[in-house]
Design a protein around this nucleic acid. Structure first.
Lengths: 260, 260
DNA sequence: CGGCGGCTTGATTCGAGTCAAGAACCGTGG
DNA sequence: CCACGGTTCTTGACTCGAATCAAGCCGCCG
């Protein structure tokens, strides 16, 4: 465990540690208590569920690598994606905090994922001794709420182009926070559609618009963002709600110094 | 202060105390520390802001009476309502938990409101001594996230009729939680529109549909829910996400025993 | 090399927005 | 007590963005 912290550059916890840091556990001494009670679980394959609806496990799941999504299967069989999850994100903290019976949400692996888990009792002991850990989890919850809030705005007020653009900006920003630097958003158009509340067909057309504008790269099937700033402008994206002091300056530019 | 607790039936804190109780502060001994550091502020008139965007006060505001909303003013001047607030709800906990610079959200009073405030330092000391208080606030945050999440689903997947119905169900349920029993939802159609992500015109037509169906009362201008169950059925409303053990059974009926 | 899941494209439909104008209601002041 | 001005609520006509339906295509994995 100690090694995992000491060599963050290469360890499997690298990304998750960055996230924890951004939640206020700045120093090694502050994260260690949390890492010490973290158990590595067998990894989950693409398409499988990490958490199934209804169950109430006695431990908290943390995504360590891969991409997952918090989603719900609707009556008509369609899937609504509430948010995407990246390394360091907790998979449904509400299962710890609320006594929800019958919550229908699930967490699904969009790529192969590696997972860590923390038993509730261990978590409790850790928080009792290290108040900052409790604070960090509270902050994580707040952040999730912020994301939902912003998406609520996004989905209910913005037209398709801005909506998709915003979704893409968020994914890039969140990936960056945990050290995933590329310009590619490795999600399928279907994933995006289910998250944006648009039909897959329409997401497709929208992406093509973005390609035509030169904002996404031309002839690759993948979603490759070439012009971040114009994307952010279209999306009216400001990373504020993600509460990422470090990265903010970068994103904020396009908002606070608009080209009027 | 002590009196306020002892006679909850009539005190101005009645509703708020119910809410705190539902957050896990069951006994008088558990709420008292929180109430002891609560200061009553001068009340805010309808239409005024309780919290303005951008400011970072050094205290936490709690709604004690009245109805407020968490909202944001958009570039084009329109108003998006994230959620309505009832007695016992905290006004933007994120201002305490996150170091948000430039958050654009505000809290507005939809009726005359009375407000309590807790200085951050007092809060900190209270939480340090009474871990359950911290837990309650965490839970409140989670609940807010739950509400945002559900609304995200509501807004992005359901057609206008179900969407409005769902919104109404939520308001009734949340009012009930704090002891507001009536069947009337005292919001304007404009408020509903701004929260549902629909135009006021369309909300109007939708309400008329509900009246024609006999679900809302006929010839009053107010929104008076006559047939809760049918409303809940149309909305596919299950109160689960509100995490209200006490009231759940009542609402859950219409979902778990559908009239098929 | 065959198949299946994801991507593209076109034609058509429909829910909700917008614009516009009038009616009912509320508070306020003469 | 009534007249006035400002909200809020209603109603109708028209428009438009996005959903749906229906094929065909591409590219990867077995």
């Amino acid at each position: 465990m100690i090694d995992l912290i000491k060599s963050p550059r290469t360890g499997p916890l690298d990304a998750a540690l960055r996230k924890f840091k951004s939640l206020g556990l700045d120093s090694d001494e502050e994260v260690r208590p949390l890492v010490n009670v973290l158990r590595i679980e067998p990894s989950v394959r693409q398409g499988q569920d990490i958490l199934r609806p209804g169950r109430s496990p006695k431990h908290l799941a943390v995504l360590l690598a891969g991409i997952a999504c918090l989603y719900q299967r609707l009556e008509d069989g369609s899937r609504h994606i509430y948010t995407f999850l990246y390394p360091g994100d907790f998979c449904d903290l509400s299962r710890y905090v609320l006594i929800e019976m019958g919550g229908a949400v699930a967490v699904g692996a969009l790529t192969d994922c590696s997972i860590g888990s923390i038993r509730f009792e261990d978590l409790e002991r850790t928080m009792a001794r290290q108040p900052r850990v409790g604070m960090a989890l509270w902050r994580a919850t707040m952040l999730e709420a912020s994301i939902f809030r912003e998406n609520l705005l996004n989905v209910s007020r913005r037209p398709a182009l801005a909506r998709v653009a915003h979704l893409l900006c968020e994914q890039l920003a969140r990936r960056e926070l945990v050290g995933l630097r590329g310009t590619v958003v490795p999600l399928t158009q279907i994933d995006l559609a289910d998250a944006a509340g648009l039909s897959a067909v329409h997401v497709n057309r929208t992406l093509q618009d973005l390609r035509r504008l030169g904002i996404l790269s031309g002839r690759s099937r993948s979603i490759d963002v070439v012009e971040r700033d114009r994307l952010a402008k279209i999306a009216k994206f400001s990373g504020h709600y993600l509460n990422m002091p470090k990265l903010l300056s970068k994103w904020a530019v396009s908002i606070e110094a608009p080209t009027r």
